[in-house]
Nucleic acid binder design. Structure first.
Lengths: 243, 243
DNA sequence: TGATACTAAATGTTCATACAAATAGTTGTT
DNA sequence: AACAACTATTTGTATGAACATTTAGTATCA
């Protein structure tokens, strides 16, 4: 563990300083409430300007890892929150764990032009086609979720893959692409006619809508997933703990 | 609405700039994706240094209200109200951080007999009254969430507390009760007549429903909270990472 | 047509410097 | 002992300057 700054590295100094601080504050003394070295001294020691050092500290303050007190000092925030929920089961695995047998009602793969928001997330242009996958899935009696997935062209999907396999397993095996981070947005919406037909409910009825932004190991966007869940049949659970 | 900086005000310039930007980006043109004026020009126009202006912009970028793109420009991030770290911040604090003024439309505290599931969660009998709090809250124009909270008798609430204060702050200060673990269930449901009336929507319309089971440091149940969010106006966000 | 090279414009990084404001402790006074 | 005034330390605010890097479009050339 290097606790110094490399001025020749292409990595910006404030990023290096931030990482260094993240290591530094693991020290039990700091965890116990000891004040960090003051900014002027620390900047001098690291051979960077106070401005640059503050940039790093600010980031950690934003992230609620550090607390500053004007005229006094900076210390580690006591009870840091970590709302990391483990939600890394695939849909089919998740259902299996609940004792529900997943049935695929529809599966459709196509090449389409991405819309604005999709292109923006992938950071590509809108006039280059990408792979889109649509799936209608559910229990043995009736469908209860409609998925739409878009994949980043970087992955190299052809559209001819075996999408009946668990998706992330296939991506990992065949394309060395591993999902690492998922940002999700859950909301309640009215079913439009299309979705209502698929889920066999009434138009205007409640639907749980989940957007997933999935990133690979390099924090690069890899999948954009939309899920429309029939209300009542799906509950999203989250567990978060103060540590 | 003043869109200029007062250099004589005791309010720091970067705070003023931040507030000014929050107003500025309400402009439909910016909401539609128009780039903000570039930093050098804008700083000159506001008669502050670029460094100070960047400090303000950085704050909004961190709050996910703005998106910067190196070599190109800065624009508004298109997204709705979300509850990113809502898990551990109070509702009002979270809204405040996003520049939304929270209004309390209704507040009602009462002593009631718990129903079966509530009593079961608290592990108490159903013939002992507990404190129930109901709140209708929202923005300046209309309500968008209805909360119902039940508290474990162990806490010792009298029902006479100042519920206008941030809830967890009050519980910590007055009753030494600290929330430590939260289990949540999110689903989409149809609004029944009662909820529809409160949220000013149609009966049967979509509502995002969140159940929270909150535990204290000793993992003992302390609060049971039900939240009914008006659809479209609320998005629940979760971020999870493989570790 | 299509690839390549260039360029203006914008954000990103870094520095040195100065003064303001709050804190916690110390010193002085009653 | 209680209160007030002072002080050293530390973070907060603000400036201006310079150069790096990336982007998106334009111009050039094969």
């Amino acid at each position: 563990m290097k606790l110094s700054i490399d001025h020749k590295s292409p990595v910006p100094l404030h990023i290096q300083a931030e990482q260094l601080l993240r290591e530094l504050i693991k020290d039990p003394a700091y965890q116990a409430g000891k004040l960090l070295p003051n900014e002027v001294e620390l900047a001098k020691k690291l051979a960077i300007s106070r401005t640059t050092l503050r940039q790093a500290i600010n980031k950690l303050v934003y992230d609620e890892l550090l607390i500053r007190k004007k005229g006094f000092g900076t210390k580690v925030a006591s009870s840091k929150i970590s709302s990391k929920s483990m939600n890394w089961l695939s849909f089919s695995q998740e259902m299996k764990a609940r004792g529900i047998n997943v049935k695929n009602y529809e599966l459709h793969v196509s090449w389409v032009f991405p819309d604005e928001s999709t292109a923006s997330f992938f950071d590509i242009s809108t006039d280059k086609k990408i792979v889109k996958m649509e799936r209608l899935r559910g229990g043995s009696d009736n469908p209860f979720v409609y998925f739409i997935s878009y994949f980043h062209p970087r992955i190299g999907l052809t559209g001819e893959e075996d999408f009946k396999r668990p998706l992330y397993e296939m991506l990992e095996d065949e394309y060395s692409t591993v999902a690492n981070l998922s940002k999700e947005e859950i909301s309640a919406i009215e079913a439009n006619k299309f979705i209502a037909d698929k889920l066999e409910i009434e138009t205007g009825g409640p639907v749980l809508f989940r957007k997933r932004f999935v990133y690979d190991q390099g924090e690069r966007p890899m999948e954009y997933n939309l899920g429309y869940y029939k209300a009542e049949s799906f509950v999203y659970t989250v567990e978060s703990r103060r540590t």
